[in-house]
Nucleic acid binder design. Structure first.
Length: 428
DNA sequence: TCTGGGGTCCTAGGACCC
DNA sequence: TCTGGGGTCCTAGGACCC
């Protein structure tokens, strides 16, 4: 059996931890640039605050009901996430924990007897809460997709379920599937949900279990659909993943705090994003062979029904030799900007994507490129270490600029209580 | 006026090879 | 006039996730 442990309104819970007077009060957390609502508590939901909706639309509602509002504080959330995951590793053994996202992990519970799962799940939930202060919901079932269904039900009926649902019999599974609208199934997004309702009269997860695999292959995205239907029927098709997987691409993309029309600012931003991406690259011991830069200009056509980002204009460059050196990547990235920038346009976003990643130890030499000395790696290590131990970006490349007019806004960010000495929680 | 920032996997179709 | 069959590799784009 597999469990999914999912933190309740994770970002909001992190904020509440240091401001307990917000318990049982409505709270929301905003995305970068204070653009969207990316976490909300049940209380905020009850007032009609939409998840993933734009902040400016929800603002009247938020002010009317005095919803506590925070900009996102990823240092804080990242640290608390780590504590939650460590707790799970202690409880079930680290080899049985697959961290799925910042606030979720799958647990392999096959070593526990079926009869013990309910007790075990409650113990997991209570221990995480006791050790970290973060409330979680636990869903247990024979497959990942079904455990997600269980978790969903636990979250929807917190009082009745105490945030724990174990689907350990056929009857329970059937009932759970009948109670789950198709759009809430893990792997069925908005597009498929609409399509399924319209064409095929599939309205619940249970309806989908009546479909054949051939049908799923044709109508639900090929092998992805096959796996989904198998898992809903109780047949595992998504294995537990080994951890420490290295990423196949690394991206750093941001909206600008204010729109930018000057190529110098865009180059500074792109150089900064490249530095950040290169840090991520080195952290996983990779080097990149392809660097892709894109910019997004301000949308002129505003009268559409559904919000769409402006078209991204990008181009890429294949490096002669894979590299993880910030200065080499920055040089390529900044040159790409020259080809993309159009004078007179106003830009609101840019991004850098590194791909074609290879292990840093096995960089393919090139006849025309003499072997690198070790100096560059040492320099990069030093910069990474200093930036990590001191504070963000104390050392950076000149191309990143010093004025940074384009930096994003986060006006309502809480202190980084657990990762910065000078922002630590104070008790008088 | 103001709508995030990462990622993954898969498919179709084109180019190319023998 | 007539133009195979099988394979690989790559890219763009679409769907999904949190």
């Amino acid at each position: 059996m597999i469990a999914i442990v999912d933190c309740n309104s994770f970002y909001c819970s992190c904020e509440r931890l240091f401001q307990p007077h917000l318990d049982n009060k409505p709270v929301v957390v905003l995305s970068n640039n204070d653009g969207c609502i990316i976490s909300r508590t049940d209380e905020a939901k009850a007032f009609g605050v939409q998840m993933a909706g734009p902040y400016f639309l929800a603002k009247p509602l938020i002010e009317k009901h005095q919803v506590a509002t925070f900009s996102s504080n990823y240092n804080l959330y990242g640290d608390l996430s780590w504590r939650v995951m460590e707790t799970l590793r202690v409880l079930v053994g680290k080899e049985n924990v697959e961290v799925y996202s910042v606030d979720e992990a799958f647990l392999n519970l096959e070593k526990f007897a079926l009869a013990d799962l309910q007790i075990m799940s409650i113990k997991i939930k209570e221990t995480v809460e006791l050790w970290t202060g973060i409330k979680v919901s636990v869903g247990v079932a024979p497959t990942k997709v079904l455990s997600k269904v269980a978790n969903h039900l636990a979250k929807k009926n917190k009082v009745a379920t105490q945030c724990v649902v174990v689907l350990d019999t056929e009857e329970k599974i059937t009932k759970a599937l009948q109670d789950t609208p198709i759009g809430e199934v893990w792997g069925v997004g908005r597009q498929y949900a609409e399509k399924l309702k319209e064409m095929n009269a599939v309205f619940t997860a249970f309806d989908l279990t009546k479909k054949s695999e051939a049908w799923a292959q044709k109508n639900l995205g090929g092998v992805v659909g096959i796996r989904l239907v198998k898992e809903l029927k109780g047949e595992p098709a998504n294995e537990m993943e080994k951890q420490l997987t290295v990423k196949k691409m690394i991206a750093t993309t941001r909206m600008f705090g204010i729109p930018v029309k000057n190529i110098k600012d865009i180059k500074e931003a792109v150089a900064t994003y490249t530095s950040r991406a290169a840090e991520k690259l080195r952290r996983q011991q990779s080097a990149a062979t392809i660097i892709n830069v894109f910019v997004v200009s301000k949308e002129t056509n505003n009268n559409q029904t559904r919000f769409r980002h402006g078209p991204a204009v990008g181009s890429y460059f294949t490096l002669p030799v894979a590299t993880a050196a910030s200065n080499e990547l920055i040089k390529a990235a900044v040159q790409l900007v020259d080809g993309l920038f159009e004078k007179g346009k106003i830009y609101k976003k840019a991004g850098v994507i590194l791909s074609g990643l290879v292990p840093i130890t096995s960089i393919q030499g090139n006849l025309f490129d003499q072997k690198k000395t070790n100096n560059k790696n040492c320099l990069m290590d030093m910069i990474d270490n200093i930036n990590f131990s001191m504070r963000d970006d104390i050392l950076k490349f000149a191309a990143s600029g010093t004025t940074r007019n384009w930096k994003m806004r986060h006006e309502m960010r809480s202190p980084r209580y657990t990762t910065r000495w000078d922002e630590m929680f104070e008790v008088r």
